[in-house]
Amino acid sequence: MSPDLIYGLAGLAVFGIGFFRALTLAAPLRRVLALKLCAVGASFLLIVAAYRQPPVTADAVPHALVITGIVVMVSAMAVALALIHRIAVLERERSDG
């Protein structure tokens, strides 16, 4: 047992939960949350790939990749949230007449 094994499996479990919920939840905001969890779970795989037993320093390349992934994800989420907001506004206008 080592941390990389423990967190690698936990990350995959988080991915599985996010994946399942992303495909089954109807409310868009919840789907955004599910997708973000999914992405975090996938990132665990890269972080674990970088891990080395303590005296050795970790591989920096996957770390840089995950930082990039986090920024990409927040961009995609911001666009999704803007769309969700706009849709809600238009639907409210339509139901108000």
Partner: peptide, 29 residues
């Protein structure tokens, strides 16, 4: 997992800014 840079980025952007975005959207809709 010896990835402090990524941890900082996740806490600041993944949790912090994303959380603020989510809460703002929640209030708006």
């Amino acid at each position: 997992l010896a990835a402090p840079d990524v941890a900082l980025a996740e806490a600041a952007i993944g949790a912090g800014v994303t959380g603020a975005l989510l809460l703002a959207t929640l209030r708006r809709i």
